[in-house]
Every structure is written in C-alpha cells, then in structure tokens.
Design a protein around this nucleic acid. Structure first.
Lengths: 248, 248
DNA sequence: TTTGCACCAAATGTATACATAAAGTATCCA
DNA sequence: TGGATACTTTATGTATACATTTGGTGCAAA
C-alpha cells in the first residue's frame, strides 16, 4: 500500500472519492461516459471495495448515475437542468438568509462574511481584472456562500444547500476563462458583489423577507445571464459560463 | 442464498437498504444508537458488502450518521431540525408548484393530482374518521406530494424534494395515532386538503406566484401546528404528530 | 449477406478472509 | 482499594476470491 506517496492520513474511501470527483469535474470523463471499476482502481490506486464506496457516494451526490444493467456513468445535465439548479440553490440560500435574519445573528457572526466580501472587493477593483484575480474570486465566492448557509444555523438546510451546490460548483475546477470575456465577467462580478452586500445588510437589520428576496433575485439574474451567455456563445463556453455565473 | 423467502428479484443491496430503513423508521433503533454491521447482517440476511453499501446510502440519505471512530449511528434530530425540514420541504415544493405553473402543464397532467385529492375527499368526509381512513390518507397524501414534485418536470428539483422528504416522511411507518386525537387530526387534514386544491387550481390557471405562496404558507402552517402540538403533548406524541402534520 | 444462436470474455454484485484499530477487561502495582 | 497498563476481544476498513449476468464475437444456417 501507500504506493501513491501522499494522502496517507485519510481513509482509502475518502481518497478515492476525492480523486474520482476531481476526474469527473475536470472533464477527464465525458458526461454519459461509463466509469469502470477497474479504471477507477487504476486511477485511485486503492482496491475495489473503497472505490465502490466512493462510487456510491458520488452517485448519491449527483455526479454519477447508476446504469440499470450495472455500474455507473457520469451524469449528463441538460441546459435546463443547470438553470434549474441555479434557481434551486438561490431559493435555498434565500431561506438560509431569512433564517439568519430571523434568528438574530450577532455582529461577530457577520464578521467573516464582511471580511470575505472585502477581500473580493480588493480583487474586483482592479481594472482590468487579471486571470489570477478571477480564480481567487471563484474560491472566495464559494466561501461566502458556505458562510451564508452556515449562518442559518440549520443543519438540515445547510446539508441541502451543500447538495444543491454540487452541480453549480462542480464546473469551475480546471476551466479556462477566455481573456476576452474578462471585462464582461468583471461587470457581472460587481453586480453580484452588490447583491451580497445587500444580503448581509438585510440580515444585520433583521429584515428576513428582504434578505430572502435578494438572494432569490440574485439567483434568477444569474440564471438569466447564463441563458443569455449560452444563446450567443461568442466568447463564453459552457464551463466558463458556469464558473462565472453560477458562482455569482 | 434466498434463505429469506421473498425479495428475490431485487439486489441484496436494495433489499438491505429497505430492511434497514424500515428498522430505523419504525423505531427499532433509537436515535443516537449505534448500528453494528453484524446486527445489520443478521437483520437483513445478506453479507457485509451489500449491508455496507446500504449503510452508506442511508447515511447519504440522512437517516444515519457516521461515527468518527468508525461505523454508523441512527441520526438524532432536534425539534428545530424537524421544523426546519418541514419548512424546507415547503419551500422546495413551492418552487415545484411555480415551475409547474410557469411551464404550462396540460389538464391531462393535472388529472392524477385531482384524482388523488378526490380519493382523499372520500376518506376525510367520514365523521368521525376511522383509523384505517387516516392511514390511507397518509399514503395518499405522500402520493400527492410526489405527483406535485414531478409536475415541475425538473429532475434536479425532484431529486432535492425527494431528499428533503426523507426526514418528514420517515416517521409515519409504524406509528400509532391516538384515537382521541383523530377529530383534531381530521380538522387539520381538511385544511390541508383545501390548500392542495388551491395549489392545483393556481397551477391550472398559470398563476406561478400564487401556487408557490400557497405551498410555502401550507408548510409554515404545518410547522406551526407541529410546534403547538409539541408544546402541549396531551394526546399527540412526537411520531404521530410528525405523521400528522408534516404530511399535510 | 444477414440473422440467429451459442459460446466466451469481462465486469459487476456478493461473499469472505485479513489486517488494523478501538474498546473492554483483567491484573498488577501504588 | 483505586488507578494504570497490558492484553484480549471485537468490530470496522480493506483486499481479494467467487459467481452471476451482461455484452460481444464468431459460426452456422437461411
């Protein structure tokens, strides 16, 4: 064992799950393509049992789909599936924002969110925005959404948001944003940043309904942008678009 | 093999999953109690491998929780967890209702829903309502909710609703409703029935916002009723209350 | 040439064997 | 008598062996 040097502390199953997810998300396997256990064993370097566990978990996670005759394939999503997932996530996050507002979070709780937004500000203020800054934005934005979900203090809701995010957040890894799209991307990022600030403000002022409405509107806008980007794919390809919009 | 007579057509894994879920949901294992693989093997009659698969799936489903030192335990939910889950489900179903309305379902699509409601009408019209009628109601009500979710034609949303329902719908199996609570239960059922009819009507008339609002309100009311029932548990115990309210 | 049947190969589902870590117990020392 | 340590036992995590089913290929017959 331990033929692959690293990842020694985590269980084989977790290691396999991470490795396979990376493989799927990075596009190493096409949607609809079958993923054989033998292949998974070779990729992960662990035996069939933990690989199998990882496959089951990835199926439950929504990245794989069971083939009736046996085995798993990479799940394929339609354009509408993705748009729906964005709105779905927005709806859940709206609920989270409302819970946070209604349950009275302290200023201390909001501090990490504000700090996160400040960091994003530092990134998007650059003109033109750099490729590295954009990548950092994606990571920071994901963190903001996680923090917001946790602010609801509702384990069931956090859990659901986590699952709902699997699809929209699945794409960024390994994508390449076209240089020419960066200015347009920056504009969208600025708007998203505005929304986020308003949400935090609403939560701070205990305005649950407003907080919820903003998050939902935010998601609807993101879905609309993606729809437009997909219609005239002049410089936005599917994956970059996802990375750009769905993480807004 | 095939020592246990039935269930021959489904895979061992699925059989184990169903058997273990039944065990958990029926209260055969207390929340927080550890579920050993050996025990699971004895209960299901299959070997450790499929049992293990089933345990992983049940964990992803939210009924089990992994113990850091190894193995699984029955997940314990707080009162707030359950209330949140109800509202969560209502929110998702509201989205489903809106999707259904906006995407223009045909009258043919609505037929099964109406038929389902008519059957429920036949049950709750009895005065006093019988125990059998109440049990039938629970099953029919679950069917209505499934049909409504499917009406959204959104696989990601249907999937999420399915997961969100795991908790609220987990309780009915094997519960016993107190005879004395039946009249009160009937009143709540009648209100729920009203809500359901309004939702179907809103969908039919393409009023997405209204359809969504009703479903959310419906869930909030259910949560409120449950909260009241839990406060003065004179004749409503936790499980019956869940069965009653959360399936409303 | 095409269709159908049979056989073969490969991959999945299942069972079990093995290793490691955790928990419980007993014994010994303070 | 109480606590700590070592040992034993048990249960989980992993690896592998076995069986069954699926899919493909080849041969034969129409």
């Amino acid at each position: 064992m331990a033929e692959r040097e690293a990842e020694r502390s985590v269980s084989q199953t977790v290691h396999a799950q991470l490795a396979l997810r990376e493989l799927i998300v990075s596009g190493g396997l096409r949607p609809g393509e079958r993923i054989s256990e033998l292949q998974a064993v070779e990729v992960t370097g662990v035996s069939r049992t933990p690989v199998r566990m990882a496959l089951v978990r990835l199926e439950e996670e929504g990245l794989l789909e069971a083939i009736p005759s046996g085995g798993f394939m990479v799940k394929a999503f339609s354009e509408r599936d993705i748009l729906d997932s964005i709105e779905l996530r927005g709806t859940l996050e709206g609920l989270a924002a409302r819970f946070a507002a209604e349950r009275g979070v302290s200023s201390r709780d909001l501090e990490p969110l504000k700090q996160c937004l400040d960091e994003i500000d530092g990134l998007v203020r650059q003109e033109p925005i750099s490729m590295e800054a954009f990548s950092s934005y994606v990571a920071l934005n994901a963190r903001f959404h996680v923090l917001l979900a946790e602010l609801s203090r509702s384990p069931p809701l956090i859990r659901q948001i986590d699952r709902a995010s699997a699809l929209p957040f699945a794409s960024p890894s390994g994508f390449v944003m076209a240089q020419s799209a960066l200015p347009e991307a920056r504009q969208i990022l600025l708007i998203a940043q505005d929304h986020h600030r308003v949400v935090v403000d609403a939560i701070e002022n205990r305005e649950g309904a407003r907080a919820e409405a903003i998050m939902r509107e935010h998601a609807r806008l993101a879905a609309r942008n993606l729809r437009l980007a997909l219609r005239n794919r002049t410089h936005l390809d599917l994956l970059p678009a996802l990375a750009l919009i769905s993480t807004g």
